[in-house]
Design a protein around this nucleic acid. Structure first.
Lengths: 208, 208
DNA sequence: TAGATTGTTAATCGATTAACAATC
DNA sequence: TAGATTGTTAATCGATTAACAATC
């Protein structure tokens, strides 16, 4: 977590991790870079390099490859899966609920504590053990539970004003699922999850 | 759509488009590369280069910049927003529903026609004008509506077998939202939407 | 041993940034 | 005119791939 890792490297590491989970399920003990390469369509020397980035001490064995369990552990340690990062979801539309119900996040260190909405009818409902609070309670609960990540899942029209309120309430990191370019002070970090962009990459590069 | 565009370029183009939508809303007629650069934190010569990639004929004016409306139109034409691409959603969990209800996709050329599930209780329900069919109807409806994109939003345990069935039914492109590395024949194209990877990029690069 | 794999260096490739003449 | 911006080339930077000795 110390150094900034290039986005592409992290993308690949996440793929390696999925593959290691699969291998572990199948009780396969070792995996080699050509094996990973074949499956993920990535050059094998790049994989060996990435593995050195994850953990330079994680030595592979000649003719055998890397220990699945060790490599998986290295990835988890390097990327801090066991360090819980508390977050709130802002917006309880389908996307907000989908994220709230997605238990898998916890395994990667993302701990979603609660949801927020401005609709009084939704306040008090629980989803997957996560309570919906009124948005006005945000500042109070941010300081109470020491949360600094906000996951923004509300329609584009309200996303900027909501983001402003989140920042005023103490949120430092915004994972933005609305298709807007948020205007934020420079100390606030925004990560845009743009499904549209993602779809465009898919169609432009693969279709026709 | 002719040439493969690097992922990073497409990512930036999608950002430019969001910004242009915003400028158009505000009735601002021109936008310059330093303006875009300032807002998106991207080098301004790169923006000028990207704009040439989108459409080499799209000339900016010295001292003024680019016509917002023209540039937006160029992006939409180059990326084929007006060419409808039909798709089915497989899986009617929260994520599937979130995607089904996300009307914005249509503006970018993604036309979601229906949903599929294996739960008989869900069959027949409509979400946002999109009917839920039983998964067994997939082959028939694929040929009937000439669909070749499948959006896979089911839990990881069933994603591989479902993908196999989708492919057997005639799906050619899979937008995969489950955190698995699908095994597919080489003529089938898979695009992984890995929210976990995305989250890791967010935390590793911004937090601590 | 023969053969497969790692680890690493060097070579290549591509993407980003800097610089600046041309323009209005 | 002075100043801001484009379009484009050259310089830099970083990422990917190839190659191969060392290892078991």
């Amino acid at each position: 977590m110390k150094d900034k890792m290039p986005k592409k490297v992290l993308e690949r590491i996440a793929l390696y991790h999925s593959l290691l989970v699969e291998y572990l399920d199948k009780n396969i003990e070792y995996i080699s870079s050509p094996q990973i390469a074949e499956r993920l369509k990535i050059n094998d020397s790049q994989i060996r390099k990435d593995i050195k980035v994850i953990n330079p001490l994680n030595n592979g064995k000649c003719r055998i490859g890397y220990s699945v369990i060790e490599l998986k552990k290295s990835i988890e340690q390097t990327l801090g899966f066991s360090i819980p990062k508390n977050a709130f979801i802002i917006g309880t539309g389908n996307l907000g609920l989908a994220l709230a119900k997605y238990d898998n996040f916890k395994n990667y260190g993302l701990n979603i504590l609660a949801l927020f909405d401005n609709d009084p009818l939704k306040v008090g409902i629980e989803f997957n053990g996560k309570k919906v609070h009124h948005i006005s309670e945000l500042p109070e609960l941010i300081s109470k539970y020491n949360v600094d990540i906000g996951i923004l899942t509300i329609p584009r029209e309200y996303s900027q004003s909501t983001a402003d309120f989140m920042i005023k309430s103490g949120i430092k990191y915004i994972w933005n699922f609305s298709p807007t370019i948020l205007k934020v002070p420079c100390e606030i970090k925004v990560w845009n999850e743009n499904l549209i962009a993602s779809f465009l990459q898919f169609t432009c590069n693969h279709i026709e």
